[in-house]
Design a binder for these strands. Sequence first.
DNA 1: AGAATGAATTAGACACGTCTAAAGAAAAGG
DNA 2: CCTTTTCTTTAGACGTGTCTAATTCATTCT
Lengths: 234, 234
Amino acid sequence: MVIPKVEDYLKTIHRLQDRDTQVAPSAIATAMGVQPPTVTAMLKRMHDDGFVDYERYQGARLTTRGEKLALETLRHHRLLELFLTEQLGYDWSEVHDEADVLEHYISEKLEARIAALLGFPTVDPHGAPIPTVDLKVRHDAGQQSVDQFDEGSLVVVSEVRDNSPDVLDYLTEVGVRLGALLKVIEVAPFGMITLKVRETDDQFSLPSETASSIFVTQFDATSTSESGQFSEVH
Amino acid sequence: MVIPKVEDYLKTIHRLQDRDTQVAPSAIATAMGVQPPTVTAMLKRMHDDGFVDYERYQGARLTTRGEKLALETLRHHRLLELFLTEQLGYDWSEVHDEADVLEHYISEKLEARIAALLGFPTVDPHGAPIPTVDLKVRHDAGQQSVDQFDEGSLVVVSEVRDNSPDVLDYLTEVGVRLGALLKVIEVAPFGMITLKVRETDDQFSLPSETASSIFVTQFDATSTSESGQFSEVH
DNA sequence: AGAATGAATTAGACACGTCTAAAGAAAAGG
DNA sequence: CCTTTTCTTTAGACGTGTCTAATTCATTCT
Ligand SMILES: [Mn+2]
Ligand SMILES: [Mn+2]
Ligand SMILES: [Mn+2]
Ligand SMILES: [Mn+2]
């Protein structure tokens, strides 16, 4: 039996590993909201249990075993988020915390039932890919964060990587949902971006830190039929 | 923040308290599957936290606070069991273990959403009453265990108090479901009961220990319309 | 009442997950 | 290259939840 806390550490290391191969204890400590000695102790135990490669002063990397468990937990998390929105009327701003707890406690049977009930979905309510049953993650190679686009670009929202309810509520309010069409109005050099929502003509500005969590694809007028694919995902 | 384990102890004490006012540590130890010293340590802490009245060698009783939390947990448990059967295709024999874990981790918001989705149900898949939002339990005063009835009695199944998947699967197989009509064929003095299911004419025998967990009400032919009330509950 | 029996408690241990304070190693800067 | 800063680890502690072994209390039996 594997323990909830280990799963949280593994998820965190998995996320941080995307950029750096060696994950620094301080980064884990910050992300987990614990003190550095806690991380040292934890990494030792996780190393003994075969979840991470770890040597003192060398940082940590997931083993195959650790990555498997991280992805299993991530699958639970994202299936639960979608389940809460689709079946229980949650808003995308409300699902994260609930899923972050339950992910550690649902059985494999319940995971399977939820997946079936939802029609074996591929993305969660924030547009993030749900790892498959055999724990493959299909990254959307085409998407980029909206602050990477030039002024005047017309883009389609494909993912929002921010868990803050306040941010998500604000985005909902201004009309930024998965599948929404946005026009990049202005990219100011001091870290501010102005966007316009096609549907409502609402215009609003965001700090580029927030904009960097909004992932989009270039709008392709020829693929109008394909935009239906996005809206079914909301 | 209250801890999962405390909730399990409180549920156990609540259950054992139904008969005895003072619950013996040994009874708690047996029910929880732990050693007696574990219970002593736990009762001390729960007493310090105001969940139980407890003095050494005197056994334990729930405080108002403890009972409230026990019932809150029981509400979670029974709502989850019904949710799993109604929404996720679980059989009544499969729900207990899953609910026994999740009961400690769902938020009050999720509890409320589940209750609403299920139409504010009053009984779980085993016929046990679901504590109301304000934590009242409506006991069914009319029901008695089937082994209390005379041979020839015609009765309606209203509750099965057994969590064992094997027993529940067996009962399903022979046709004992909530709302089923049973005829008491024979009550043997050496602890065996023979019953017949009205619908299928299946006849089968049970040890009286198992029979004592099957609760029924005397079938009243005038209340045929009321039997619809039972079947909607399955 | 005194002795035997059984239940409950104390004592001491351990794994988990966390902390603070102190010490040690690595990286950065001059 | 030596010093300062920053990061990481060790040391020691604590609360939770559990155990085994030993002791103490309560009850029951003669
Ligand atoms: Mn999330
Ligand atoms: Mn989590
Ligand atoms: Mn149950
Ligand atoms: Mn439980």
